[in-house]
Structure formats: C-alpha cells, structure tokens
Simulated assay, not measured.
Amino acid sequence: MSRALHLTEQLISRRSVTPEDGGCQRILAERLAPLGFACETIVSGPQDFRVTNLWAKRQGRSEKTVVFAGHTDVVPTGPLEQWSSDPFTPSHREGKLYGRGAADMKTSIAAFTVAVEEFLQAHPDPALSVALLITSDEEGPSVDGTVVVCQELQRRSERLDWCIVGEPSSVERLGDMIKNGRRGTLSGKLTVKGIQGHIAYPQLARNPIHQALPALAELTATEWDRGNEFFPPTSFQISNMHGGTGAGNVIPGSVAIDFNFRFASVSNAQDLKRRVHEVLDRHGLEYELDWVLGGEPFLTTPGDLVDAVRDAIRAETGVETRLSTTGGTSDGRFISKICPQVVEFGPVNATIHKIDEHVRVAEIEPLKNIYRRTLELLDAKA
C-alpha cells in the first residue's frame, strides 16, 4: 500500500464532522515535526464550537513560501442506512476508496503531506519554504478557521507567495480542471412592508407582494456586469419568498425575500448594494434590507503558480488542464487576502457531500506526484 493511500485511510477513519478535527491534525503534525516543521495549533471559537487549526512551516534558504491548505472537517454523513459501508471505515470496492471526506478533502491532505515528505527527502536543503494551513472549520460557519489563521499570519507579517488549496477541482479525470479563482457571494434578506387587511377591502390595505414584484422583476432583469475572461457575468438569484398569514382572505402585512449575488471580480459588494437600494427606492418601497458578505471574489491569472501546477499535471498525467472559477466559495477567499497567487487543485469532485463519497484509488498516487512535481518547479523559482 502506498504511503499516500495509507494516510488517506487513517484520516477517513477519524470522525471529524465539522467543527471536529478528530485528531487528524495531530497525525499530520507528528509526521511533519521530524522533517523540521514548526507546528502550531491555533484554537478558536466558543466553548461549544471549538475549532482546531494547524499552522506548520519549514523555513527554506529563501523567503519564498508555498502553502498547502486544506480542511480536516467533513459534512455530516446523512442517513447511515443509505451508505453501502460505514462512512468512517475506509472501504475498497471496484477500484474506489469509500468514506466521508474521501474526495472532500482528506485524499488531498494525505497526498500533499506525503508529497512534502518525498520532496524533502530528495531535496533536504531546498530554497523553498513550505507550509501547511489546515482547519476544521471549512464545512461550518468558516469564522474560526482559515480566516483566523490568516489574520494571525498577517499580524506577524508572514510572507506567503503561492498557495494550493486541495479542494476537489477535477471534473471527469484527475487534472482536467484547476480553479484559479472563485466568485464572490453577497446575500440579502429583504423585508417589504405593507398594511395587512381583508382581501375583499384592498383599498384599506397595502399589499407588499404586489408592491415588491415590479422591483424584483427589474432586479432579475438587470445586467450587473459582463464578466471577463475568467468569470461569467454576475448572477442575481432569488432563493426564497415568504408572505401571508396562511389564510386565503388576508392581505399580508409584509413579505420577506432572500436573494444572492455570485459576483465577478469586475464588480464589488458596495456597488451591488448601492444599485439594489436605488431600484428599491425608485419603486417607492417601505423596506428593510440586511446584507451578509460571504466572501469577495479572487483571481489568480496565469503565472508562476498556475504554470507550475499545469506543467506538473501534464508531466504526470498527460492532461491539458482547464482554468475555471465555477462553483461555490472556498477558503481561498481568505488566503487570497494575504497571498498573491492561490489555486485549487484536487481529485474528482463528483461525489463530494454525497452518500458513498469516494475517490479512485488509481488517482491517489498521481495526485501526490503532481503536488511533489509542483514543489520541485516552484523550488527552482525560489
């Protein structure tokens, strides 16, 4: 059994449902410390929701630093009876390794940990500084995990040059896609106020649903931007609408609408907020609007990091990878604030968060090799 596969199985066997780490980071630290890594545990969050973060760094001869980032926490299993095997007992069937977190993202963590071991064995005195940033709060609220570590690193003026997040980025086969950015996410909870009344006497009431609909139609038809080479146009989507008392003869006194922007790097949250308020005000609505900024967009254009990962994929698999910014948010949005080049690369994402989550065993060793080759290419630039 390869070391990467063995470590993947060790990590899967740890019940680390968010925000629990389940001892995964201790396993990693015990492997990294003998290699010269300074391993630091950063604990954050309230007593009933403690988050464990690992920051491990080995200083090289230069100041150039590459970071591997990942999360040991996993989403809940869902109905256990629907799983073909215990989600926390690594199981092999038809060339696939099953278990919660197999794809998202314990295989990546195992692969880049072993890649670091092999790199340092072959290059015991590299120019490159190597670090790992591991959290147990990526699948949860994401307020006490990577963001807290990044704030601490920024306070220390820690230099980060390149970061590879081990998110499962591949689509059909290993290496066919890497994420070189992500869209921002901005959510709004809009409450439009009216006057409740009997449905037979509309002149004595004010229907907030009727009032809101023209404004909502304008918002849904608005072109917010045209995107760019890497991002599709910004999307505005209504996810929920609730109004009414449950009675068929009552005009409601208010209606609540939940909506979300997934926005490109050519837009910003403040401008989107301003434009929404302009529409609502122009339609004369009485309303309240609460905003939640889930993350700003980030983008890494082709350069040292993108080229290194692409070249490593090509050398190991022969695959010509595509760049993409699709999908939801990741911890890359926090790391990009202190690191100029961030990409996401990992195994096939077809089963993440699903029943019977799995990865192809045959792709674990190549994944490890791609990470190791990337280290070698970046070391040459350090």
Results as ranks from 00 to 15, higher is better:
V342D: 08
L289W: 06
E81K: 10
T146C: 03
F345Q: 00
W162E: 04
H71R: 02
L132H: 01
L293Q: 15
E40M: 04
T234C: 13
L272E: 03
I251E: 07
K193F: 15
C150Y: 04
P297C: 14
A115Q: 13
H283N: 04
G70Q: 09
I209H: 08
M105H: 13
Q341S: 13
H242A: 15
V147A: 10
E81V: 06
G248N: 10
A308F: 06
E20A: 12
G60K: 01
V74C: 07
L378I: 14
L97F: 00
A312V: 05
P34K: 14
R14Y: 10
K106V: 09
I109Y: 10
R156S: 12
R50Y: 09
I12P: 00
S324H: 10
E81G: 01
S62N: 09
A56P: 02
G294C: 08
D125E: 14
G194M: 07
S265H: 09
G328K: 05
E218M: 09
Q203T: 06
V114M: 06
T72K: 11
Y371F: 15
L305V: 06
H283K: 04
P340T: 11
A382E: 14
Q82L: 14
H283F: 13
L216I: 15
T245M: 05
V250L: 07
L377M: 13
E138D: 13
G346D: 02
L285T: 08
R373H: 13
A29K: 14
R58F: 03
P208W: 13
A382P: 04
H353C: 07
F37Y: 11
D356Q: 09
A4L: 02
P340M: 09
Q82N: 14
G197Y: 06
D311Y: 07
Q151S: 14
F49Q: 12
L5T: 08
D331F: 05
A200E: 08
Q59G: 02
T220D: 08
L377V: 02
H358A: 10
L190S: 06
W224V: 01
F263S: 00
D161S: 14
T8A: 13
T65P: 01
K106A: 11
L219E: 03
S324L: 04
C150V: 15
D86R: 14
G295P: 01
K368L: 10
T321H: 01
G318F: 04
L160N: 02
G243R: 10
G194T: 08
L213S: 02
L7S: 03
S330K: 00
F88P: 11
G246R: 00
D307C: 03
G328C: 08
A362L: 12
G101W: 01
N53M: 03
V342Y: 08
P297E: 07
S324Q: 07
H358M: 06
E218G: 08
E158S: 04
F230K: 02
F298Q: 06
T191G: 07
V309C: 12
I199F: 06
S142N: 11
S142I: 11
Q47F: 03
G227T: 07
E316F: 01
R156V: 13
E229F: 05
I352H: 01
R14A: 10
Q196H: 04
A212Q: 10
V116H: 03
D258E: 15
A103M: 10
Q25V: 04
E152P: 00
S324V: 03
P297S: 14
P233H: 14
A200M: 02
